[in-house]
């Protein structure tokens, strides 16, 4: 519940002073301050929050996304930040229109903890984090065909029948990523040409079968 008298974190005002119109909205919900930022400036905002001595958000608590039941509402990517020394929390959000590209810059360069967190958001929601060193699925297998599970348009039991899901699951090679070239490819995925990425996505694998 957002009480009208609930205090905003002072970081919200500091952000407004520093970034002006890029800060779209500030809310307070259940005592937490939430700042909505435009997608273009999000990396600058996060870097500013981390590096400015008065803010000092050195700890990235979480990166996640929210897809609302109302199909009109945009998808939100959420960063939970924390300053250990100042004992302060802040929630930063970016709204992504579902019709447009679901693309945000990575914050892996700022916090190493973002690595797997962003991979999970990609896996579950399909949000791509530009500049991430290893943008692959993490919880579902690499060649998972059904889609992005936590989206609201994804049914609870998936799109395919159970037999089809079983067949696809059994067809996955449990030793994938076992070959050296596989590992190397994961690191260099960004630099691969498009058609090779397509072939990898379709399940083509080098190395021992």
């Amino acid at each position: 519940m957002s009480a009208p008298t609930a205090a905003q974190s002072p970081s919200a005002q500091a952000l407004r002073d520093a970034f002006g119109a890029a800060i779209e909205r500030v809310e307070v919900s259940c005592g937490d301050t939430i700042v909505y930022v435009s997608r273009e400036r999000i990396h600058d905002v996060l870097a500013w929050l981390k590096e400015t001595p008065t803010q000092d958000f050195d700890y990235l608590t979480d990166v996640t996304a929210v897809d609302y039941r109302d199909a009109e509402r945009p998808l939100e990517v959420v960063w939970q930040l924390r300053s250990l020394a100042r004992k302060a929390d802040l929630r930063v959000k970016v709204r992504l229109d579902k019709d447009g590209p679901l693309d945000v810059p990575t914050c892996w360069d700022l916090w190493r903890g973002a690595n797997w967190l962003e991979r999970e958001v990609f896996d579950m929601f399909g949000v791509n984090f530009a500049g991430h060193p290893d943008m692959r699925r993490i919880l579902m297998w690499e060649t998972y065909q059904e889609g992005f599970p936590l989206r609201k348009d994804f049914p609870l039991r998936g799109h395919f029948s159970r037999a089809e899901q079983t067949r696809q699951a059994l067809a996955v090679n449990p030793e994938a990523h076992y070959s050296l070239e596989e590992l190397a490819t994961a690191d260099a995925y960004r630099n691969l040409p498009q058609d090779m990425r397509e072939r990898l996505r379709r399940g083509e694998r080098g190395g021992p079968e």
């Binding site: 608590t61 979480d62 996640t64 929210v66 897809d67 609302y68 039941r69 959420v78 939970q80 190493r112 903890g113 690595n115 797997w116 967190l117 999970e120």
Partner: peptide
């Protein structure tokens, strides 16, 4: 950490589990 997003109904819109072991293992 549990992050809940509610729309006023009896079922949550989003339940996010912020798992400590996930981040510990990533290191």
């Amino acid at each position: 950490g549990y992050y809940f997003v509610s729309d006023g109904t009896a079922k949550p819109v989003r339940w996010r589990i912020r798992p400590p072991s996930f981040l510990n293992l990533a290191a």
